[in-house]
Structures are given as structure tokens and as C-alpha cells.
Simulated assay, not measured.
Amino acid sequence: MVEQVPVTGDLPGLRPFRVAVPEAELADLRDRLRRTRWPEAAPAPGWEQGIPLEVVQRLCRRWAEGYDWRATEARLDAVPQYLVTVDGLDLHLLHARSPHPGAFPLVLTHGWPGSVLELLSLVGPLTDPPAHGGRAEDAFDVVIPSLPGYGFSGRPTTRGWGIERVARAWARLMALLGYDRYGAAGSDWGTSVSATLGVLDPAHVAGVHLVPPLAGPRPDGGPPSPEERAALAELAQRGRESSAYSEVHRTAPQTVGYALTDSPAGLCAWLGEKLLAWTGPPGLTDDQVLDQVSLYWFTRTAASSARLYAESIGQVAGWLGGQDEPVVRVPAGASVFGAEVPRPSRRWTERRFPDLRYWAEHERGGHFPALEVPELLVEDLRAFYRHVR
């Protein structure tokens, strides 16, 4: 399905990349933050009408006065990074090879409002397990691309860059890197892209690990269990109370992009609301939130990242409702974290992923396990891929 290119030193078309935000950009950010025009506090208590004023003001004070982007930049630049043109678009990727022979290739995909920074803490434990309490035979070569329109990847200028086209680009990317057989894993959009990759490139995808798997009930599937009813109720509540961002991204990514690209406080509120609300206790630190917000700010990708919703969120919503689910026949593993929504059952998952070889449910963690509970996610990845290496 895809052309294989052997690894012989530098690969054709792979251009080394480093992050170096100009100092003038940092100064401009701080100036904008200090001149923010704030709204009044909400008349409703807590988070009832969105992220509270005092939370956003706290984040923005930290962003302007104490947050160290240069330290974050250095963490990124400590991992080999590249740009490569695939399907006419420049893709940014982190590519960390393991020092251990026989390491298994793994492409990790982030989502929104995440980025490659979300997955950075996984690189060391996955590429060099003995240095992090693991076994050398569990080592991975790790590839972490930035989704099209996200981070330092190019921004599509035409329609059509939905999850299928992204998955095809990932298949081509892994071939360019010389990997004939590999795994795919991810969360949020990364779940959809990885599952689709398993459908489109089964000759090369050894298995997919999903956080969580996207599968829903069917009318002919019998009555839901008490746990399934609770999960469906939480998903419905999420849809009623906090899905406005998704509808805006789906219907008007350009419109919201003007405000989010021009106002750092606005961007901080828009992304920070989900980064904080979708986690389990104790949640993310302010600097973990600002890492993600900063990357979106400096790359000016608020609008381009939102367009993936216009391309594919309707399709994904159908899968959550048990409709039009393509069966993924490659081996699959799944991790479901306690504060995550949705939380599909194993029964629903096995219908869509009939070769389900690994299932884990965790009380801790939420939508961003690589930031919240990386040790649990790393162990799940190691455990699942032992079945398919």
C-alpha cells in the first residue's frame, strides 16, 4: 500500500528542525497580556457559565510574569525534530530512536487542545525503558507528528484534511522513515486517526492502542448495563453542558480564529477551560496548561487546528452513537481512565475491535493521561505491544 524506504543515515526529504521563537514574540505576548480587557465575573457560581474569571487571570499572570517558554522550548529541542513534505503539506515530527536493538516503531498522535508537547514525557520511558524502571525488550522507536494545522505542521489551504487523509499521511510518513511494521496509538483525535490507520494500512499496522476506543451501543445490542447507562448519561450531560466549543469549531472555525489568534487571554480561556475541566484530580499544573496554550499562540494555529472538527467531528460523533463504525480488524488495546468522557464498555469495544487483546481501566487520570498519569499510560503501551511485536 505504501512505498518502503530503507533507513540509511539521513532520509531524503527529512529536514532537521528546531524551535526558536524570536524574543520579540515573547515581548509582544507579555505586552498583550498586560493590556487585556477583562469581562466581569460570571453571575453564576463556579464553572457553570465557563471557566471562572479568577482562573484565567491567574493563568495569564503566570504567563506574563513567571512562565518560562525557553525551558519548554529546550525540552522540545532535546528530541530530534524534522519537517517532511507528505501529500503536499509540511509535517512536523519528533523522531526519537531507541538505543536498544529491536525497538518497535510507534507513531503517537495527539488531539485538541493538545500538541506534541502533551506526549513529550513519554519519549524517555518508551525509547529507553531500563533508564525508567522497565525492560529493554519493551523499547520503542517513537514518532510524534503534529497534526496538520497544529503546532509547526503546515496549515491546509483546501478542504479534505480529515482523519482519513491524516491517517494516509501517517502511513506514508512511517514508510518514509523506513518502518515496514509499526504500531499506532493516541488519544482524542489521535484515537480516531490511529483506528483509521488500522483500517487503511493493515498490511503494516501491527496493532493500535486507543485512549479511549470510540465505540457506542447499537439498538440490537441488548439493554445497557448499569455501568453503560452511567457512561451514556455522562456523555449526554457533556453534550448539553460543555460542547459549545465543538459546534463552534465545526461550523465557524474561521470566525473564532480571529479572536483566538489576536487575544492571548482569549486563547488561554478557550484552551484552558478544557485542559483543566477534562482532567481527574489533582488536575494539570498551570505550567502544563501554559505549555499547550503557548504552542498554539506562537504558531498561530487556533483557526487551523479547529478546522479538523469541520472535517471530521460529525463522523466521530456517529461512532460514539454506535453508527457507521468501521470495524478495525488489526489487534487492538484500550485504556479507559476514570475521569474520561466517553467511557465505552468492553462489550461495545469488542464489537468494533474484534481482535481486542488488551483492556485496562484506571481510577486515576482523565482526558490527558500523558500529562496526568504518564506512568500508567507507559505501562499500558508496553503491556499491549508485547502481544504484537
Rank of each mutant, 00 (worst) to 15 (best):
V2M: 12
G9E: 09
L11R: 12
G13Y: 07
P16K: 07
A20E: 15
A27G: 13
A27I: 06
D28N: 07
L29Y: 03
A44F: 03
E73V: 06
D77C: 15
G88Q: 07
L94R: 08
R97N: 07
L106V: 14
T109W: 02
S115I: 12
V123Y: 10
G124N: 04
P130D: 12
A131W: 00
H132F: 14
A139F: 02
A139N: 00
D141K: 01
V142A: 07
R159H: 11
A175E: 12
Y182C: 08
A185H: 03
S192P: 04
V205R: 01
V208I: 10
V208D: 01
L210M: 12
P217G: 14
G221S: 13
P223Q: 03
E228W: 09
R229T: 15
L232E: 11
L232G: 06
A233V: 10
E234F: 04
L235R: 11
E241T: 14
S242I: 11
H249Y: 10
T251D: 13
T251V: 12
A259R: 13
A269C: 08
L275A: 07
G280C: 09
G280K: 05
L290D: 03
S294E: 03
L295I: 14
R300Y: 06
T301W: 00
S304L: 01
S305V: 02
Y309T: 05
E311H: 09
G314V: 10
Q323C: 09
D324T: 08
R329C: 06
V336H: 07
V341W: 08
R346E: 15
R351I: 14
Y358D: 08
W359A: 13
A360N: 10
L376W: 07
